[in-house]
Nucleic acid binder design. Structure first.
Length: 877
RNA sequence: GGAGGCAUAGCUCAGUUGGUUAGAGCGCUCGCUUCACAUGCGAGAGGUCGUAGGUUCGAGUCCUACUGUCUCUACCA
């Protein structure tokens, strides 16, 4: 046995991980004799390093995969990283600006991509190291990257297939544009935030009718330069005479029609809306319905273009001010009022997003969404917790076409080629040698790359070999469970589901385990601006990976957010320290002892009690693990380890361990070893390092705990009667302790215990325990309280009356009032039970088991009451 | 506008399909350096489970309304 006095994870975590890796236990292979169990990691972005949210995600996955591996599944946890197109590109742009003083355009595409791959090598590698520190049992031989050859091949295959099926198309539509990143964004990539702004009321004069005008209200006056109509509600009587007439657009002095459209809300603003089809999604729709001209007045970088006339070249916000001034000058600004409204921001750079008309590639969603909704409706895919299905439906049922092209360089380049000579468009998996139509070799590839989520959507099968029907793909797909946060249900989970169904004809996973986000100790979201982020590596350096993992999982309900605090870490560390010391106790005593397998031991009552407790624990923990209720599973392991094993069983073994009976000592130690070993196995998925370290020191164990057999429930170990006996003894011990504390006697003071009972045999056979655990020097049996001559404290239990003579410490008056309080409590229990049993509804309708239990409870309390009364009478006489 | 979560001890949170006397951690009080552990041991105090109704023999748990709070989603110019 080689264990330091204090738990010190830094001494062994690294060594253990290295051993695991060397042993090849993490590797999974196609094995027809075993049932596969597969998890693909949600690939962390290579933008930086792992944060505490990743630590939670990986801990949950590792716990599940370790559990399944021990249960005998061929467990594969497939690791990888994500190129994170826009997020990484933003970082690299910043880097080259800082280090080389260049913009990406100045650097050029080829050089830029070199920098990006270097970044990937550096940060991708770092993330892998961090995953290892956490203890993640990933199959590193399969490490994937969303832009590696395999994934790239899958992306091209899927793009071409969808295009051929007519599910990918190119079109000019209104999309979200980030003027800072200069790329299109999908709807999911826009974040809205409320901002204080103004509502500007503008007068648009009616053509040919001097002095008459229509007032529109707008939050974006600068877009009026691109107005091509004003819309009113067809039922709005105020404006019915205007419909079909023309207005003169101020400043621009252009004729624009008044159209009637249901989209307009009569009650909002003035009931008249300026229509700018090029710069507003709703206006774009109105424009389509009324055949309006689309005039785009803004450049890609957010400045005004030549169609903005004298405002050309101005930044959009500058232009807004200038337009307002100009409108005021020409008398078209009627009034201004403060207004709060939601403005969309780029989820990566946070600039405000500009809705503009642009030619982009889209995925047609309607037909893809239907089977994806059905798969969840018919429970082929189950969300845990189930409430997240509603969030999923909500999005899927209202889904719009997915804009997948990005005007970026870092990512999968769109596999579309244009012939410079004949203009032919070629959508091909591999770059053509020449134009498929005219044979020209003068062609170019589409400049754009794909949305990063396009490749992530294929992750569960691209990493296993798709489009080739490999053995891996056949064996490990569909995967079993996907573990991720609720924040990427739309971005990722939904898209994997329809992609799996479309390209593999099968769901990508059976279960989706959703967890919450990790917040700081005050419940705030961790963010760079608040500076309240917690670095998992720092926590590991201070407390060890096991403590971090324990803190993130113990007692946490699925799907709910987690508060992370130092206090929590400390209490987790204390628990692991407790395991450490309990194990030291067991192992130190084992030295030189004859430890036998549990099957060769004849257990006595205390042993049967802990074996039955262990058995129950195994049953509930296994059940909870299978339901992915890891927080509860771990909490039950914790309670068993601390309260049953350490607080009670270890103490109960001491009389035997320090006694002279060698056979008894060996038997007890064998049970101690068995229970410790099995408990460590239950804990191993959550806290792998410390359990491995201790396990290797237990006599009789060979190999790693991570490939040991997971404990199994066995009804032969229930020992119901013995467990009840032990519980009665434990009640006696607790009662004596209570008497001593209440009397103010020192814990070390040895007292005499006088017992009235019909079950003398039980007390006799457990005398060792009672004496050792409650500081009793001698147990005396009497037939009734009348036989006691000294002043005593009294405690009445079911089947036992306990009396402790404590001489002058005994205060009769206090004792009487204490007994009266006990009596009152007992009375209220009797009353409660009686009212239930007197209720015909309860007796008739409640399950017989419960009625019986209630009857027993009543009898028990009535017996207690009788004894308390008898004791009270003694004092009164 | 739509949807969802949460409201339980001083604080942070558990609480399985409704069913014994509602639990834990931290904090607090009292007593202990007892031969694994003071990162500990023993004994306690502390809760009308947000409010009002309802269903039921029985509600922290199910239903309705309300109050407070957080989040997602839509983007009404």
């Amino acid at each position: 046995m080689d264990m330091q006095k204090t738990y010190n994870p830094q001494d062994f975590e690294k060594r253990i991980y290295d051993n695991w890796e060397k042993s090849g236990y993490f590797k999974a292979k196609v094995n027809p004799d075993k049932v596969p169990f597969t998890i693909v990691i949600p690939p962390p972005n290579i933008t930086g390093q792992l944060h505490i949210g990743h630590a939670l995600d990986e801990t949950l996955q590792d716990a599940i995969i370790r559990f399944k591996r021990m249960q005998g599944y061929e467990a594969l946890w497939l690791p990888g990283t994500d190129h994170a197109s826009i997020a990484t590109e933003v970082k690299i742009v910043e880097l080259i600006k800082k280090e080389e003083g260049l913009t990406k355009e100045q650097l050029g595409r080829e050089e830029f991509l070199k920098r990006a791959w270097a970044w990937k090598e550096k940060y991708g590698g770092r993330i892998v190291e961090q995953l290892k520190c956490l203890g993640s049992s990933c199959d590193w031989s399969r490490l994937a990257f969303t832009m590696d050859d395999r994934c790239s091949k899958a992306v091209k295959e899927v793009f071409v297939n969808l295009y051929d099926k007519g599910l990918i198309y190119q079109g000019s539509k209104i999309i979200n544009w980030c003027p800072s990143c200069k790329t299109a964004l999908s709807d999911a990539e826009v974040e809205y935030a409320e901002e204080d702004s103004y509502f500007w009321y503008l007068d648009y004069p009616l053509e040919g009718e001097e002095g008459k005008c229509l007032t529109v209200a707008t939050t974006r006056p600068e877009t009026m330069l691109g107005d091509t109509a004003v819309a009113v509600n067809p039922h709005d009587k105020r404006y019915s005479s205007f419909v079909g007439k023309y207005l003169i657009l101020p400043i621009v002095n252009k004729r624009i029609p008044v159209v009637a459209d249901d989209y307009v809300d009569m009650k909002f603003g003035t009931g008249a809306v300026k229509i700018t089809p090029a710069h507003d999604p709703n206006d774009f729709e109105v424009g389509l319905r009324h055949n309006l001209e689309v005039i785009r007045v803004m450049n890609d970088d957010g400045t005004m273009n030549e169609l903005a006339g004298k405002f050309a070249g101005m930044d959009r916000f500058e232009c807004r001010k200038a337009i307002v001034e100009e409108l005021k000058a020409v008398g078209a600004l009627k009034k201004t009022e403060p207004h709060k409204h939601n403005v969309g921001h780029c989820y990566r750079c946070h600039s405000s997003v500009e809705p503009i008309v642009s030619k982009q590639w889209f995925v047609k969603m309607a037909d893809l969404a239907k089977p994806a909704i059905a798969a969840v409706k018919n429970k082929s895919i189950k969300f845990t917790p189930s409430r997240f299905t509603k969030i999923y439906y909500n999005w899927m049922e209202n889904i719009k076409d997915w804009c997948i092209s990005r005007q970026l360089w870092w990512g999968h380049r769109i596999p579309v080629y244009y012939c410079e000579d004949c203009g032919e468009k070629m959508v091909l998996k591999d770059a053509p040698k020449c134009c498929t139509k005219c044979g020209s070799t003068n062609f170019r590839q589409d400049e754009d790359v794909l949305d990063t989520w396009f490749s992530s959507a294929l992750w569960p099968f691209s990493t296993l070999g798709y489009p080739d029907m490999t053995e891996d793909l056949k064996y490990f797909y569909p995967t079993d469970v996907l573990v991720t946060g609720y924040d990427i249900i739309f971005f990722w989970v939904a898209r994997m589901i329809f992609s799996g169904l479309e390209h593999m004809n099968r769901i990508p996973f059976k279960d989706v385990l959703i967890h919450g986000i990790v917040r700081d100790d005050k419940g705030r979201k961790m963010s760079k601006s608040l500076g309240n982020g917690v670095d998992p590596l720092e926590v590991i350096a201070e407390y060890g990976a096991d403590t971090l993992r324990f803190s993130l999982v113990n007692g946490v309900a699925a799907g709910s957010d987690i508060r992370f605090s130092k206090e929590k870490c400390e209490s987790s560390r204390n628990f692991i320290n407790k395991i450490w010391n309990a194990s030291r106790f067991v192992l130190m005593n084992c030295e030189g002892a004859d430890i036998r397998p549990i099957t060769e031991i004849k257990p006595e009552v205390k042993d049967k009690w802990i074996l039955s407790r262990l058995n129950h624990t195994v049953k509930s923990v296994t059940m909870l693990m299978e339901k992915y209720d890891l927080g509860m599973a771990l909490s039950i392991c914790h309670d068993f380890m601390w309260y049953d094993f350490c607080d009670w069983y270890i103490e109960l073994t001491k009389p035997a361990l320090y006694g002279d009976d060698i056979a008894k000592k060996n038997a007890t130690l064998s049970v101690l070893c068995h229970v410790l070993k099995e408990t460590l196995k239950l804990l191993h998925p959550f806290i792998p390092y410390v359990t491995e370290e201790i396990y290797s020191n237990i006599p009789g164990t060979t190999g790693s705990i991570m490939v040991s057999e997971y404990p199994r429930y066995n009804s032969a170990y229930n020992y119901k009667k013995d467990a009840e006996k032990m519980n009665a003894v434990m009640d006696i011990i607790k009662a004596v302790r209570q008497i001593k504390v209440q009397a103010g006697a020192a814990p070390s003071k040895k007292v005499e215990l006088i017992v009235v009972t019909e079950n003398r045999k039980l007390v006799d056979s457990s005398a060792d325990f009672i004496c050792k655990l409650s500081g009793v020097s001698k147990i005396v049996f009497v037939s009734s309280k009348q036989d006691i001559t000294e002043k005593v404290f009294t405690q009445v239990l079911n089947g036992f009356e306990l009396f402790v003579p404590l001489g002058d410490l005994v205060d009769i008056e206090k004792e009487v009032s204490r007994l009266k309080a006990e009596l009152e409590k007992t009375d209220s229990e009797i009353e409660r039970a009686e009212s239930k049993l007197n209720n015909p509804g309860f007796v008739e309708k409640a399950p017989a088991k419960l009625v019986d239990a209630e009857k027993q409870k009543l009898a028990k309390f009535q017996e207690l009451k009788a004894k308390i009364l008898a004791n009270l009478k003694e004092y009164e006489s």
